[in-house]
Design a protein around this nucleic acid. Structure first.
Lengths: 77, 77
DNA sequence: AGACATTTGTACGTATGTATG
DNA sequence: GCATACATACGTACAAATGTC
């Protein structure tokens, strides 16, 4: 979930939460689809897209068109 | 509301009132938008802007473009 | 080949909010 | 008080890639 009372932007809250969970080893392999993540975090698809872009820039995940988004090998615990 | 018969300037009345309510813990998280505050205090938007600038200078709030103005953590009760 | 489902990718329009003059 | 610009966020629709049956 995202805290609307936080000054932190929604897409950053999502990116930081996912990044933390990835580095903690909670998430491995394939991530939940972007649209499903939008439902889980209760934000729009565009917000998830933006958060994913940040995770890709950080090198934590790679996205494959038509297949999904995957945790990179070095990112886990 | 603002007292037009007071010698204190309108933007100072607003800033002081909001500052008092923040430090009393009445306001936390996200503030009402600047446009709505202008309606509540029955002053112009510019007056609210000026009052907000004072609250920011005092470190009571932070404003985030496109998201809102937020009470800083240390400001509440 | 074809049909279908799933998923990422792209592109709108709309609403709301701050920033500035 | 108003207009303009910019940023965030939402919602939707459609396109493109992949895999399965």
């Amino acid at each position: 979930m995202v805290d609307p009372d936080s000054p932190e932007q929604a897409y950053l809250q999502v990116a930081n939460d996912l990044g933390r969970r990835i580095q903690a080893g909670e998430i491995r392999g394939r991530l939940t689809s972007e649209r499903d993540l939008a439902g889980e975090y209760e934000v729009s698809y565009g917000t998830i897209r933006r958060a994913m872009g940040i995770l890709r820039d950080r090198g934590l995940v790679v996205s494959v068109h038509g297949r999904g988004t995957f945790v990179t090998r070095a990112s886990g615990s």
